[in-house]
Write a protein that binds this DNA or RNA. Structure first.
Length: 931
RNA sequence: GCCUGAGUGGUGGAAUUGGUAGACACGUUGGACUUAAAAUCCAAUGAGCAUUGCGCUCGUGCGGGUUCAAGUCCCGCCUCAGGUACCA
């Protein structure tokens, strides 16, 4: 019987399905292990070879853990809400659910073909009402909660209301918007509307008028992480800033905990660093500059600074164009100019603003504020280099020590005062400076009571002074913004919210799920309302209108890993028992593009559920691995301009050519199948070729896989030809899992050859079973045990590529030894199972076992078989390896030295030289220093 | 600009703790088997020099350093990839 991968793979996939081999029971007495893949969005294009990379790695690990007696939770599901299905619906009228369902079927079929050990009984889909019921439920809990800074956790809003009723809000420390202080008496006299408005400032899911990223092309608002360089991540459309009433999640309340939690998870440093940057903690002070002159009655301008020590050098102030005070403080003679500037700044796209950062623009408002430490008046400017979204949207400018302030000051000829000097350096005239001195260290000068202090001490002293004067305080600021949670889209979770007299209220929990309604068109209404406004009777049973926005993509993906623990529970999100058992994800594999999105939202969502007492771990993903991307490898042909003649790669420079993409399926080892090419497209039917060495050689380039580049490799054909086991091994063999790498099918043959060679250990050339019961030799045992040790080590450190080569070495050596012994070949089949499960199952059965191999104990290696009596010492002279010398392993250092120096080969290297030193590292190396 | 990661043969990559650089595989070349092809097997394959053989020199992005010994550690650069950006 030859190695028939098609038959074997079909057979075992069916067996696994019928026997539910990989079903994970909630068996609480077994040790658990939770291996998770980031679930996919089922796109219409199906899987390409890049998708399964991470799934194969996690599958190997999951299978390995099963062999060690762990109860392994290894589920899969679908992030089913997404823009492509909705865009398709807009174009064709096909309900996104139909498109999604179809795509999921295809995904499932492709996933099954690769032989993953998923427990499909636990599948979830974010668009399934039974699933999104809990997404909606969580939203309601967020709506009903506030963040208590005293206990540092989310708490029910009812408790907060009780405090308001008895003591007002003065003693409350909450993560909230600016709220005026009120007493219990005032609270109790407020009307409901007013009370609700105040509570909205405390809720963790809140409705507010905020500046959002509006994407006109997609007709929706986007979260910050969905915008890259001023363009939408999906589709690359321009994004504008717009003031809109939107739902947001108060993720900022969790900023510090999100930061602290990174300390205890096992993630790549780059990933932690990206999250730290995204959260963007900075320590400093918040303080107020009193307005001067006519505006004095308006109070002060709040600013945040990380350098309160430089306050004596603050020579002007700048407000963001959106700042509310501008209108009030601008003096009549500057009003026209300032208005025009503000208008201009607001109309600039985000992209323009970002690309023109070097251009200095701004206007003087005519107003002055008082520097609280110098007592001097400083002019107040408006400029768009100050962002409304960070800090207070206003800054104190210290041009001597901040490059942006410096550029601004130079441009508008504002005074520059040095207040920090490097130690032992002469102070120079700031007029002569070419750039600011952005010093984090140094000694304070020109700064009154701060003079002579180091920067670090001066910061402390300045904050103390501000607090004493009651004009400022030490403050920690975060770059992280609250997550905008409304989307003006159809294909998403409806909010479980209705409006009564304009105020939002949650639906009763027993009415969940609130199902996505049918609409006649997947477009906004004529009046610009979101698509759900088209739904008939989009009201509660009492007739109150329901929210028409839907939730964003990250809503459903933020806690799916928890739902897998107990996916069919219709009473609660998941049972306490299930959660106490599975706890959190032990190993999470997915792409690093989710660093600032999904992985932050999930951590936030999980922490909130932790605060509610639902999740028992406050970090959801203990270990994280980012699989690298598989890049495409495009092939090119070179058409001589204006002709239908194509010139081979190395001859192309002799002509004026144009490079055209050519389908990689017609190219083998850079050689074009010219006949296939002629048949490819009608325009190439009469193509002529200028060959080199009788072949047409294509050019190539590594770039993203995409249809238009004709470089997409779909796994189906490869599985058909070589089988899933070969594909699995080959994807792992390509290189380290976390590294990006170009896809190239050159080399898959080698892996296929390896499996056939392995098969021939069990079957003779005449296709006869040839496994014998003979005792294995020392050499054979050594090969086996060396391999066991290597494979175990490699899986444990996620080095799957070296694992594959270890198998190759093992099979090469056993073939050389002509080993066909059960004693060796049976453990080898188990060893191989995580990587090539179909083949391993087949061999296991042929070896006479009933049932699946998947839970058989993983082989242990025994050190005694690896012991060597002698070792071939590499002998170096002055660090260069010259020859090898076989010596007993237990030979003492002194004797090794003697043996080396008296060896015949040593003489020519010692000729005429004196031995200065001999280094002997037993069992490793000998180095002779001579000269 | 800042942060992170990476640079090793024609190619993908290996070298786990400072100890034989290039494992394993692809590709290439030559050979065996075959009427032929496929499949399979064997041999060679970092570069340069030398060649009858044993061989010699150089070599892990560049320049320094530490060490008996550096792909690996330290200092200074260069290039590429990703993230991020008037974040005060």
């Amino acid at each position: 019987m030859a190695y028939n991968h098609q038959e074997i793979e079909k057979k075992w996939q069916q067996y696994w399905r019928e026997h539910k081999t990989f079903k994970a029971e909630n068996k609480f007495d077994l040790p658990k292990y939770y291996v998770l893949d980031m679930f996919p969005y089922p796109s219409g294009a199906g899987l390409h070879v890049g998708h399964p990379l991470g799934y194969i790695a996690s599958d190997i690990y999951a299978r390995y853990k099963r062999h060690q007696g762990f109860n392994v939770l290894h589920p899969m599901g679908y992030d089913a809400y997404g823009l492509p299905a909705e865009q398709y619906a807009i174009q064709t009228g096909t309900h996104p659910e139909i498109t999604t369902e179809k795509n999921i079927k295809r995904y499932r079929q492709q996933l099954d073909q690769i032989g993953f050990s998923f427990d499909w009984d636990r599948e979830v889909r974010t668009s399934d009402p039974a699933y999104y019921k809990w997404t909606q439920w969580t939203f309601i809990q967020l709506f009903k909660s506030w963040y208590n800074k005293k206990t540092d956790k989310a708490e029910p809003l009812t408790e907060l209301v009780k405090q308001f009723e008895t003591a007002g809000n003065a003693g409350v420390e909450a993560a909230c918007d600016e709220v005026e202080t009120f007493t219990a008496g005032q609270w109790n006299q407020m009307e409901e509307k007013q009370q609700q408005e105040i509570l909205m400032h405390y809720r963790l899911a809140y409705l507010s008028e905020t500046m959002v990223n509006w994407c006109p092309a997609l007709g929706t608002v986007l979260a910050n992480d969905e915008v890259k360089e001023g363009l939408s991540e999906r589709g690359g459309h321009p994004v504008e800033r717009k003031l809109m009433k939107q739902w947001s999640l108060r993720i900022t309340a969790y900023a510090q905990r999100l930061l602290d939690g990174l300390e205890k998870v096992d993630w790549p440093d780059s990933m932690k660093e990206m999250q730290r940057n995204w959260i963007g903690r900075s320590e400093g002070a918040s303080l107020s500059f009193q307005l001067a002159g006519a505006s004095a009655a308006l109070g002060g301008i709040e600013v945040f600074t990380t350098r309160p020590d430089t306050l004596f050098g603050a020579t002007f102030m700048v407000l963001a164009p959106e700042h509310a005070l501008i209108e009030k403080i601008t003096t009549p003679e500057y009003k026209k100019e300032v208005d025009a500037y503000v208008q201009w700044a607001k109309n600039r796209s985000e992209r323009e603003r970002m690309t023109e950062v070097k251009k200095v623009t701004g206007k003087f408002t005519g107003a002055y504020a008082v520097n609280p430490l110098t007592g001097k008046n400083v002019p107040v400017w408006v400029a768009d280099y100050v962002l409304s979204g960070y800090g207070t949207g206003a800054i104190m400018a210290v041009p001597a020590h901040d490059s942006r302030d410096f550029a601004f000051a130079r441009h508008f000829k504002l005074p520059i005062i040095q207040v920090v000097a490097a130690e032992n350096e002469a102070v120079t005239d700031t007029e002569q400076w070419d750039e600011s001195y952005d010093a984090k260290e140094g000694i304070l000068i020109n700064s009154g009571f701060l003079n002579g202090l180091s920067v670090k001490k001066a910061i402390r002293a300045a904050i103390d002074k501000l607090e004493e004067l009651k004009i400022g305080t030490g403050k920690i600021n975060y770059r992280l913004r609250d997550a905008i949670f409304s989307r003006q889209r159809y294909w998403g979770e409806p909010f479980p919210i209705y409006y009564k007299e304009g105020l939002p209220y949650p639906l009763p929990e027993e009415e969940l799920p609130l199902k996505l309604p049918e609409v006649d068109k997947y477009l906004p209404t004529e009046t610009g309302e979101p698509p759900l406004a088209r739904a008939k009777n989009w009201k509660t049973k009492d007739g109150y209108p329901l929210e028409t926005n839907t939730m964003p993509g990250f809503a459903g993906s933020s806690a799916y890993y928890l739902r897998y623990m107990d996916p069919h529970n219709d009473k609660e999100y998941f049972s306490k028992e299930a959660n106490r058992y599975w706890r959190n994800v032990d190993l999470y594999i997915g792409g690093d593009e989710h660093a600032a999105g999904h992985l932050i939202y999930s951590r936030f969502w999980n922490k909130f559920l932790f605060d509610l007492g639902l999740a028992c771990e406050d970090e959801p993903f203990q270990k994280l691995i980012n699989q690298g991307k598989i890049q495409g490898r495009s092939s090119f042909v070179y058409r001589i301009q204006g002709t239908n003649r194509f010139v081979s790669y190395n001859l192309r420079k002799q002509h004026k050519t144009q490079a055209l993409y050519v389908d990689i399926n017609m190219v083998d080892n850079d050689v074009l199948d010219t006949e296939a090419f002629k048949k490819w497209l009608p325009e190439f039917a009469n193509a002529e070729f200028i060959l080199e060495d009788g072949k047409y050689i294509c050019g190539h380039e590594v770039e993203k896989m995409s249809k238009s580049k004709h470089n997409v490799q779909n796994p189906d054909e490869l599985i058909e030809k070589y089988g899933a086991d070969t594909l699995r091994l080959y994807e792992m063999f390509l290189g380290p899992i976390e590294q990006d790498k170009p896809w190239d099918i050159k080399g898959i043959e080698g892996v296929f050859r390896f499996l056939k060679k392995l098969w021939r250990l069990y079957f003779s050339d005449e296709d006869k079973w040839q496994v014998t019961a003979d005792r294995a030799t020392e050499a054979e045992r050594k090969v086996l045990h060396k391999t066991i040790k290597k494979i175990r080590g490699d899986i444990e450190r996620f080095s799957f590529n070296t694992g594959v080569s270890a198998f190759m070495i093992c099979v090469n050596e056993l073939s050389d030894l002509k080993c066909h012994k059960r004693e060796i070949l049976e453990p080898l089949a188990v060893l191989l199972e995580p990587y090539a499960p179909h083949l391993a199952e087949e061999l296991w059965q042929l070896l006479g076992h009933a049932g699946s191999i998947s839970r058989v104990d993983f082989p242990e290696y025994e050190e005694k078989y690896l012991k060597e009596d002698s070792f071939a010492y590499p002998v170096s002279f002055n660090g260069k390896m010259r020859f090898k010398l076989e010596l007993p392993v237990n030979m003492p250092k002194e004797e090794v030295e003697k043996a080396v120096l008296s060896a015949e080969e040593a003489q020519r290297w010692l000729d005429g030289k004196t031995v200065r030193k001999v280094i002997v590292v037993p069992g490793r190396i000998v180095n002779v220093v001579a000269g």
